[in-house]
Write a protein that binds this DNA or RNA. Structure first.
Lengths: 337, 337
DNA sequence: AGACTTTAGCGAAACGATTAGCTATCGGGG
DNA sequence: CCCCGATAGCTAATCGTTTCGCTAAAGTCT
C-alpha cells in the first residue's frame, strides 16, 4: 500500500503538497498538481483513514444502537439509517443492545473507543441507569425513546396520540370491553401508548378492566402467552389494542390457536406493524409512524451537531402517528358487553 | 480526553509502562501497576482507537455489505452478523448495495479506505464486473452468492436442492402444471433454484410451460405484477414455486386480488420466507436455510483469515435447505391438468 | 530602487498509541 | 571479585497524515 511519502517522492514534491492536492486545501500550480495526480494514479495511492483519523480527530463513523434487531421495526430503521448515513458521507456502525441495559453499556463504551463522530441511540432501560459521562464529547440523538433528564436531541413519536387514535377507533366501532397487550412499563413508549388508551376510554367514561391490561417484553412470544392467558377467560375483551407490531403477530397467533377468529370474534388494532405482513390476511388496523422520515431527521440533527461545533439548544422532534385501517376490526355485535 | 501521556505523567511512569499495563504485554511490578491503574481510572483514560489503528495497522472493523436491506432475509443476516462480529471482538460496519453494482463498487472502495480488517459480501451483479484489486489485501468472505472465478472463501446455500425439494413436494401432491416466479437470471441463486425446479420436473418427464416461468427483481412489487399477469390467463398453473420470501408475499397478494384462494385454488411453495409471517394465514410451505448458522460460519471463516496470516486453501461451504410444511399447498383436485 | 505583499511550496511538528532496543539494578555462579 | 543473565522500566522511533510557520521568488507601491 503506497503512502503519501511514496507519492511525494515519485512526483518530486513534498508531502504537504500531495496533501494539498488530495484535499484541495491550498493553491497548487497546475504543473505540480498534474505531476502529483499522475503519481497518485500510478501508485494507486489511497490515503490511510487511520492516519487521517488520528490527525483530524474524526472517524467518519456514525454509530446506530438499536434495541432489538430481530424486530422489523428496527430493521426498518437500520435500512433508512444506512442510506442516510451514506448520503451524508459517513459509514454506519451497527449495534444491537437486545433490550439489555448491560449490553447497551458495553456498546456505549465501544462507540467511544471507536471514536465514532456521533451516535443515534434507541435507549434501553430506565433513565437513572445512565451516567452523564457516557454521553460526554460525542454527538448524540435519541431515537424513538427518550431518557428523562438527558440533554441530547431526541426524535420520538407521539405515543399518547398513537394509543388514543387506535383505541378511539375501536370505541367508535362500539367496543367497550377493550384490552391491551403492551410492552414493559419502564419504557416511555409503552407507558405513553397505554396512557393514550386510558385517556381515550376515560373520555367516554370508561376504563379498562384490571385483568385486561397485560404487559411483557416487546416480543412475539411474550405477546402470545399473555394474550392466550387473557383471552382464555370468559369475560375476555371484545377488542385488543396491541402496542407493537411483533406483539400483534403474537396476539393474532394466540387468538387463532384459541379457536377465535379475527375480526369476527375479536378486533385487533395495534401501533406499528411488521413489514411484509401487508400481503397476508387479515391486514392489521394500526397506527403507523413515518419511520424513514424519523430516521432521516435524526441523522440530520446528528450531522448538524457533528459538523457545527455551535451549542444550539436541545431539539426534541415529535412525529405524529397515522391510522391505517385494515381488516382486523369489526363493529361490535348487538349483544354488546 | 486524557491521553497515554497524561496517565504516564500522573502515575510517574513512562508511556511504555502504561501501554504495557493496558495490554498486559510485559511484566510490570505490582506497585507500578497499581499506580498506573488508579491513574487510568481517575483520568477516565480510554486509549485512542485511531492511534492504535495507525500503529497496529488494524481497525477492529468488519464490513458487511448486503444486497437489499429492505428484504427481511438480509435483515436476518444483519441481526446474526452483528452478534457474531461483537462476539469476536470486532464492530460491524453495515452497507446496503441495494442490488446496484455501481453502489457496490463505491462500497468496496469505502470499505478499503476505512481500513476494515475484513468484509462479508453478498455480491450483486455479474462476475465480470469485479476487478481483482477490489479484493486485494482485505480478507473477504462471499455470503449467499458466489462470484465465478473469484478466489474468496464462500458460504452459500444449495439452491438447486432448494428448488428441487420444493417442487418435488408440489409434484408429490399431484400438481403437474407448476409455474415459477423467480429472481434475476444473472444471479446464481435464481438460476440454481430454477434449475432445481426444472430437474425435479424432468425427473418425472415434465417441463414447465414457457409462459409459466417468470423472473423479476427480488422484490414484492415485481413478484406481484408478474404473478398477476401469469395467473390471469386461463391455462394458469395449479401451483407456483416462488424463489424468495418477499416475492412469495407479492404472489399471495396477487392471487388474493385475482379472487383466487390459496391453497384451494393455487398452491404456493417457496424458498425462504419473511420473518413474522409465521403468525399469519396461510402459513407458507417453503424451504428454509439456517441463516444464523450460515452467518456465523461466514464470520468464523473471516476472522480466521484475518487473524491467521496463513494462506489456507480457499474454502467453499454449502448449506442444505430444509422443507417446512405450512398450509399454502393442497393436493391437486381430481380434474388434474 | 527599496520596502512591503502575495504566492507556491517546503520542512517539520504534531496526533496518540506501540514497541524495539537500551540501561540500570540485583543476585548468583565461577 | 568479576561477569552474566534476568528483571523492570525508560527513551525514542515509528505508523501516515495534516497543518503551522517559514522561505524564497515574484509582484506592487511609493
Amino acid at each position: 500500500m503506497a503512502t503519501i511519502k511514496d507519492v511525494a517522492r515519485k512526483a518530486g514534491v513534498s508531502t504537504a503538497t500531495v496533501s494539498a492536492v488530495m484535499n484541495d486545501t491550498a493553491f497548487v500550480s497546475p504543473e505540480l498538481r498534474a505531476r502529483v495526480v499522475t503519481a497518485i494514479r500510478e501508485l494507486r495511492y489511497e490515503p490511510s483513514q487511520a492516519a487521517r483519523n488520528l490527525r483530524r480527530n474524526r472517524s467518519q463513523l456514525i454509530a446506530l444502537a438499536v434495541a432489538d434487531l430481530s424486530n422489523p421495526f428496527y430493521a426498518r430503521i437500520v435500512w433508512s439509517a444506512e442510506a442516510a448515513v451514506a448520503a451524508w458521507g459517513y459509514s454506519l456502525v451497527l449495534f444491537n443492545s437486545d433490550e439489555k441495559p448491560d449490553t447497551e453499556r458495553r456498546i456505549l463504551s465501544r462507540i467511544r473507543t471507536l471514536g465514532c463522530d456521533g451516535m443515534v441511540l434507541v435507549p434501553v432501560g430506565a433513565a437513572n441507569q445512565y451516567q452523564s459521562h457516557e454521553f460526554e464529547g460525542i454527538a448524540t440523538v435519541l431515537l424513538g425513546r427518550s431518557i428523562e433528564g438527558n440533554s441530547a436531541d431526541t426524535v420520538t413519536i407521539d405515543n399518547h396520540a398513537a394509543g388514543r387514535q387506535a383505541v378511539d377507533y375501536l370505541l367508535d366501532l362500539g367496543h367497550r370491553r377493550i384490552g391491551s397487550v403492551t410492552g414493559p412499563m419502564q419504557l416511555s413508549t409503552s407507558k405513553g401508548r397505554l396512557d393514550g388508551m386510558i385517556d381515550a376510554m376515560a373520555a367516554r367514561g370508561l376504563a379498562p378492566q384490571p385483568g385486561h391490561v397485560r404487559s411483557g417484553e416487546f416480543r412475539e412470544e411474550a405477546a402470545y402467552s399473555v394474550a392466550r392467558d387473557m383471552m382464555g377467560s370468559p369475560d375476555r375483551p371484545t377488542a385488543i389494542y396491541v402496542a407493537n407490531g411483533v406483539m400483534a403477530i403474537g396476539v393474532m397467533r394466540a387468538i387463532a390457536d384459541l379457536g377465535l377468529r379475527c375480526p369476527q370474534d375479536v378486533s385487533i388494532a395495534s401501533t406499528d406493524t411488521v413489514a411484509g405482513a401487508g400481503g397476508l390476511k387479515p391486514r392489521l388496523t394500526r397506527t403507523e409512524h413515518p419511520i424513514a422520515d424519523m430516521t432521516n431527521e435524526a441523522l440530520r440533527l446528528l450531522v448538524d451537531r457533528i459538523e457545527e461545533r455551535g451549542a444550539e439548544p436541545v431539539r426534541n422532534i415529535i412525529f405524529q402517528p397515522a391510522l391505517i385501517v385494515g381488516e382486523s376490526c369489526m363493529p361490535l355485535r348487538g349483544d354488546a358487553g
